[in-house]
Design a protein around this nucleic acid. Sequence first.
RNA 1: GCGCACGUAGCUCAGUUGGAUUAGAGCGUCGGUCUACGGAACCGAAGGCCGCAGGUUCGAGUCCUGCCGUGCGCACCA
Length: 580
Amino acid sequence: MTDDLYDLNGLAASLQAALDEELTAGGAEVKAPAVELTLPARPEHGDVTTNAALITAKRAGRVPRELAEAVGGRWLAGPGAGVCDRFEVAGPGFLNLFLNDTWYRGALDKLLAEGVDYGRGALPVPQRKRMNIEFVSVNPTGPLHVGHARYASYGDALCRILAFVGHDVTREFYVNDYGTQMLRFGQSLAARYGQRLGLDTPVPEEGYQGDYLLDLADELIATVGDRYKPALEAVVPDVTALPAEVTGELKLWGRDAILAQFRVTLERLRVPFDVWTPESSLYEGDGVHRGFGGEVGKSLADLDGEDLLYDEDGAAWLKTTQYGDDKDRVLIRGTGDPTYFLSDIAYHRDKMDRGFEHMIDIWGADHHGYVPRMKAAFTALPPHDPDKLELIIGQLVNLLESGESRRMSKRRGDIVTVDDLVDAIGVDAARFLLVGRSQDTTLELDIDLAVQQSNQNPVYYVQYAHARICSILKNLPGGGERPAGEAVPAVTVGPHERSLLQALARFPDVLLSAADTRSPHRVHGYLGELAAEFHVFYRHCRVLSDDADVAAFRAGLCTAVRSTLAAGLGLLGVSAPESM
RNA sequence: GCGCACGUAGCUCAGUUGGAUUAGAGCGUCGGUCUACGGAACCGAAGGCCGCAGGUUCGAGUCCUGCCGUGCGCACCA
């Protein structure tokens, strides 16, 4: 048989063929569902097992155990002949295959041939999409805190995984630099600036009270000197009375300064972005409709064209109820100002214009109430396809301090920043910690405990396995390098080696499942299991064996584990050190 | 009140899209292992009516319904 048999996919495909043949031979006009293989937890259930007969039997009018028996026999007499010694039908109709050493050695050969690209492109080509993934997207009014760190880590890992399995991924940061919050930010900066220049200009009650604005004010003075002092003197103490022009300039300057900090922090956290789209840019451009230009104007024109806008109480409303929302929503306030929602509609229109086949927004749970209206508005826009937009709601971070719950507030300036976290435990530990739990679960984060326990972070367990392998291979003649294309020696494959190879064989399925369910934490869990399998193997199987064939086989196995660990860690934004 | 999530070991969490007497891991607790390649390791023990009650089927931690508990929302803020 061909090389294609030497991984789980190949096995599944050949079993699928046997199943289809059996159904056809039985005269059944039934299309069998896709055969899926699982690796049983118990050795007596074989090396791989499938419930395909169990699932198919009813539809095909067959008895499950009888069907499993027939499929197994057909397969073993055909493609399975060389790689499988026997099969068993067990329980209600499971088909258990007992693979032989030929299969395991062939699997290792295949792993070594794929090297660091093992698992890459695991997604069938027709399923690949041009995707846009938007995450973090916080308004640039203050430092990134640990809550943002979670979404940054989650989104980044998800992007890496989606790209690795085959999607074309654009990572995007939406900069909320428009609207009320930004105005308050500009005023707060003005107030701090005035204070630094000796004026009595308190930060407005609704403003941003954090100390970081004092630092930013110092930076501002270093840049522009006292250029804005006269304007402030004229309004002391009330910075909200400043001319819009002055506030606007300060706002933009502050925005850029904060964004520069974002970039540094995110780079440090190993979270790169391809595109930064400022909300304000959506208002720039031609095509004015209802007084707004740019994408905003075009969106309003689109919606008017669909007869979905109406005016009431001096505001312009969108009939989101026509698309499942529980009430209509304001797009243009009575004051004439646009709502955040209007910006967001324009933003999604813009993304569609840019030709993405699929869009993902990652939001915090505190925004989940916003989902129905966003979905509704998205559906209202051409091409009226709700499936193109996926809204992922991640649960929040519950910050604890010595076991006590601690509320963060950016406006109050009471926050634990991303930089604080990274300073305290390092990037690797932080990334591994933040992406270790399902996005559906609130993350309990006790900073003190995290610092105290950082040296027992599971990340080191995985990294240690990697470093250990590097060390072992260095001790081998030739540094453990194998001649390309040469098959591993025909040695007996022991139980620990089999377990390790089984763990390796799961990697592509883990990636596909992590990608499909948007769950990077599955990669996190897998890495722990793979590392554990390796440590057990190491304990029982000496690599630097006197038997040259055994040594070569085990060195090959180590090499495959090393590259898989490195690939998996890389997908989580964690380094794979050669020594530690 | 309504909506969306989540309730699994002392703590933090997995559970491969419904699979196989015995539901797993880390930390913590207790007890072991090494004349060899990295002890940040390995092995074992204790610890569970998987929130509660029904239902669906060959089979449920997983799906449905209802309760209970926790979190987050319910703006012409973002």
